[in-house]
Computed example of a mutant assay.
Amino acid sequence: MKDGGRIVNISTTRTRLSSRGGAAYASMRGAIDVLSQHVATELGQRRITVNVIAPGVVATDISGGIVRNNPE
């Protein structure tokens, strides 16, 4: 990557909230958060920025559409 580049990783707000059945998913996304922090430190001198986007609830088919099908 050239100096001054940009890295954008996708995570989730579930790394900050706990819920049943979410351990594996949240821990893998949590690894992205930690990796991003370390890579930012390592590449900062080269003016390479590292950001993490962590969207909130999104209506998808994940978990059988539990979010999408919930009227609340």
Rank of each mutant, 00 (worst) to 15 (best):
I7K: 10
R46D: 13
N9M: 07
Q37M: 03
K2N: 15
R6N: 14
L35N: 05
M28W: 01
S11H: 03
Q45M: 03
N70K: 07
V8K: 10
R29G: 09
R46W: 05
S19D: 13
Q37L: 06
E42Y: 00
R6C: 10
T60S: 14
I7W: 02
Y25T: 03
A54P: 09
P71S: 11
E42G: 13
G5W: 08
S27A: 13
V39W: 01
R68S: 12
Q37F: 00
I66H: 11
G22I: 00
S11L: 05
M28Q: 03
V8Y: 09
I32A: 15
R6G: 05
A31F: 10
D33S: 00
E42M: 06
N51K: 00
R47E: 04
R14F: 13
V67C: 13
A31T: 08
G64T: 04
R29F: 01
G21P: 14
G4D: 13
A40P: 15
V58H: 01
A23L: 13
D3Y: 04
T15W: 03
V58R: 01
L43N: 07
I53P: 15
I10S: 14
T15E: 12
A26L: 07
I66N: 12
R46P: 15
Q45S: 10
I32E: 11
G5T: 03
R29M: 06
A54Y: 06
S63D: 13
D3Q: 04
M28D: 02
V34E: 11
V52R: 04
P55M: 00
E72C: 03
A26T: 08
V39C: 10
I10D: 05
V39H: 02
D61Q: 08
V34C: 05
Y25E: 03
R29H: 09
N9A: 12
S19P: 07
R16Q: 15
A26Q: 06
Y25W: 02
I32K: 09
T60K: 01
R14G: 15
A40D: 15
T41F: 00
M28A: 08
S19G: 14
N9F: 00
L17C: 05
S11F: 01
G64S: 03
N69K: 06
V52S: 10
N70F: 14
S18N: 05
S63K: 03
S18E: 08
T13C: 10
E42D: 15
M28V: 01
A40C: 14
R16L: 12
I7C: 11
G44H: 02
N9Y: 00
G5Y: 12
G4Y: 15
Q45Y: 02
I10E: 02
A31L: 10
A23Q: 11
R47Y: 11
I10R: 05
M28T: 12
T49H: 06
G56F: 03
T49Q: 12
R14M: 15
S11C: 07
I53V: 15
I7D: 15
A26K: 07
R68D: 09
T15N: 09
R20Y: 04
G4L: 15
V50M: 04
A31V: 03
T49E: 09
A59R: 06
G5K: 06
K2D: 15
I66K: 14
R16G: 15
R46K: 13
T49K: 06
G44D: 10
N51S: 13
T41W: 00
S27C: 04
M28N: 06
I48K: 04
L35H: 01
S27L: 08
E42Q: 08
I10A: 13
I62P: 01
